[in-house]
Amino acid sequence: MNSWINLDALWKIVVIGLLAGAGLPALFAVGLRALAPATRTADPKAGAVPAPDVPAPELRGKVIAGICFVAVLAAMAWGVYSIVHSG
């Protein structure tokens, strides 16, 4: 602990900040990816025109997406809780 820089607080902010601030959007992205129809990711440049009737995401994808989004929402709720109880 340095009298000029609160190193203890600083490293916590960086580490937890990366987990929450970068991890949550990444988790959200995983959820979105799970919702995307699988056929489109295979070969986007091969000239295969996207099928006119885009298939609905599979059940497995929906479940994964649901888990991701709920986790993100829970983290936001924790954020609000931490505002209310800060100090």
Partner: peptide, 24 residues
């Protein structure tokens, strides 16, 4: 600090959603 977190977050979301249809 905020910039670092945003760089990592942005990199990850673009990497993860590569191939996801633009509209979605």
């Amino acid at each position: 600090i905020a910039g670092l977190v945003a760089v990592v977050g942005t990199f990850l979301v673009y990497r993860i959603t590569r191939g996801v249809p633009e509209e979605l």
